[in-house]
Structures are given as C-alpha cells and as structure tokens.
Nucleic acid binder design. Structure first.
Lengths: 192, 192
DNA sequence: GTTCTGTGATTGAACGTTCATTCATCCTCT
DNA sequence: AGAGGATGAATGAACGTTCAATCACAGAAC
C-alpha cells in the first residue's frame, strides 16, 4: 500500500485511514505499520512517538486543506465571490477526502488539541484568519474577530459535510439544499 | 467525592470529569473508580464494560440537556420566542456544565457515536427534532428537514460556547457579541 | 434484645491481553 | 567495507476485566 510514495507519507496515510475509522486509541502502531507496509520500528525513525505521529498527521492534513482552498482563491474577485469560493472549495475538499474530514473533526474535539496546540501557528488556520481579515479590511464584511469568524464558518462547513454524509438518502428524498446555509451566513456577516 | 449520591451516578460523574479532561483512552477504569470512591470491580456491577459506561454517560448527559431545555420551553409563546429561549437555555446549560459540553463534543465526533448509536432513539435528540417540527407545522419556519435543522442549530450553539471558553479574554477586548449569531440563524430559517 | 443466617453489594489483588517502544541484527546502497 | 535505514521479536508497563473473599445489613429465630 502506497509503496511508491515516500515512507513518511505512507505512515501518515495509513494512520489517517485507521484513525478516522477506529479513533486514536483503537489504532495501534503495529497496525499502522502493517497498513503502511513497514515494520513498526520504522515509524520511530520518522516520529518520536505515537503522539508526535498524530500531531504530524494534523499538520499534514491542515497543509492539504490550505493548499486546496488557497489554490482556489482569487484575490481579484469581490470578497463576496471569494467567500462563496472558499465555502465551495472547503466543502469539495472534505467530500473528496472524507478520511481527512473525519480525522480533523476527531482531532479538534480531542485533548490532543490542547491549549499549546491552539497557540502553535498553523498554515491553514493562519490562511483562514487572513482571509477573513482581508474581507474586513476591504470593508465588505463586519469587523468581527477574524479568528472567531473563521472558526464559525469552518465549523458550519464541517457540520454540513457531516450531515450530508450521514443523511445521504434522506436528504435526496427531501430535496434539501444545504448549500443555502452559505447564503444565510453571508447575509449575516456582510456589510449592508 | 459525591459520597451522598447513589453509586451509579458517582461513577458516571467521576468518569465524565476524567473524560472531558483527558479523553476516553486516557481515562482508565481504575482511575474512574478511585475518583468515584469505589473499587474498580464495583463499576462492573453497574456497567457491562467500559464501552457501556461511556454510552451510559452519553445517555445521562443527553437526558440532563433535555430536562434543562424542555423545562425552559413554553409552547404558548410564539415560535420565534421559543427559538430564542431554546438557544439561550442550551447555551446556559453548557456554560453551567462545561464538563458535559466537552464530553458531548468529544463523543459526537468519536467512533463511539456509531451508525447504530445515531439510529437509537435519544430523548434529547427526539425533543430537539420535535421542537423544530412544531415550528414548521405552525408555519413559522421553513419546511426544512427538522433533523438537519436541529443538528445545525445545536452545532452552532456548541461551537459558540467553545469559542467563548477558548477566547474568553480576546472576546472581552473586542467586545464581540456572539449571541448575534442566533439572530443570523433565525433570519435564515424563519418564514418571511 | 441478641444471635444467627442468607443475600447481594463491594473489594482489590491477580490475570491475561494489548500496546508503545526498544534494540540487536539485518539489509541495501555507495 | 561501512553507514544508515529497516526489521520485528522482545520488553515491560498499563489496561480492562474477573472472582474469591469480605462486608453490611435485613429479617428470622429464639
């Protein structure tokens, strides 16, 4: 599995896959190694211990999100258009990478996401804060705390993706359009 | 600790306290027993195993939320007023019981919250669905799926409480009023 | 009132398992 | 030949769970 990629990435992808399905404590290092096609000792060449591995996955995951969302951002557009792009790109990314979505949800609500973790700079969070800050500077959205804004928007995208996954059939039947939530949020934060 | 309450509740409260701080896997049964003031064997008179204990806590916790929120509901009011009451009561409850808030967040995003868990009937979720269903029946909110509506509202309350806890000082400085989010949501779901 | 007896909860040492981590050994290149 | 990565059996700590022994106490017997 993943034999063509470099070892560190193999280990991360293998662990990501196990953790999203079974959780942190039900994903033994031995199994991570097996799925990655390496010996368990090899993991310790790349990560100091299991906790470092999990934090390594978090960093990998947030970098992947940042890459995808920032790639789709065009600073020449109006902030309204940029906002809708941001929303769509983040949603698409999670739907293309369900294991990342599930891991991220688990991580954010776990004790791994400690206070020092939240203080640590993080490429994705920094991008997200900066994104909303630029909207405020341009005077297109209300001058709320950009950190709070980004958490709120990201939380809503997260939970909408989760709902879509869990209620796939029911949503189709009821013809729900969850994407309308994005209009609701935009109407709430835009400057009138 | 909790010596005056009955044993089962002692065990639940002790485990709730440990889990909200350290997570599921870093809360050994031996420590739960110690904090509850019982022997570890005693836990197995009340719960089949550790997983049953965790699910027992979830049931206890959701029942507490339901009691608090339904107590503050007055079906004679307009649905708009009921909505704002619901929002306020849920927020207040989490702020009064931070360990429940943290446990609930962790549980919902963990593999414990399996598919069968989501199908299982749950007093709080049933209440919440029923609440939004009645708003739809009265024609005061849009005919969206009440399950989706309740998840969205509950998710937003959850994350606002989390933000308030994590950014206590920053919010005070920036004079943020997160409760405005409730107006934003109401404007989005109400029938014009 | 006192002693006896049955019942069911409580205890915590002991057990077996699982797990993260280590390290002597073994490749695989250069 | 040598350096450095990779191996996986071995290690020991930690964990969930069990169970024989103990305890608390209610009612019966006297």
């Amino acid at each position: 599995m993943h034999n063509l990629l470099d070892k560190k990435k193999c280990i991360i992808l293998s662990a990501l896959d196990l953790i999203q399905e079974h959780g942190f404590h039900a994903s033994p290092v031995s199994q991570v190694a097996k799925n990655a096609g390496v010996a368990s000792g090899t993991i310790y060449t790349y990560f100091e211990n299991k906790e470092a591995l999990i934090i390594g996955i978090f960093e990998y995951v947030t970098e992947e999100i940042r890459k995808y969302v920032s790639k789709g951002d065009d600073t020449n557009l109006s902030f309204k258009d940029r906002f809708y792009n941001y929303w769509k790109n983040l949603t698409d990314f999670y739907e293309l990478n369900p294991s990342i979505h599930r891991f991220y949800d688990q991580f954010l609500n776990s004790p791994f996401n400690s206070e020092e973790m939240q203080i640590k700079s993080n490429v994705w969070h920094d991008f997200s804060h900066g994104f909303f800050e630029s909207g405020i500077k341009q005077g297109e959205i209300k001058a709320l705390n950009p950190i709070v804004l980004s958490i709120l928007v990201n939380t809503n995208v997260n939970s909408i993706v989760r709902i879509k996954r869990n209620f796939k059939n029911k949503l189709a039947r009821n013809n729900m359009d969850l994407d309308e939530i994005s209009h609701l949020i935009w109407d709430g934060i835009k400057v009138e």
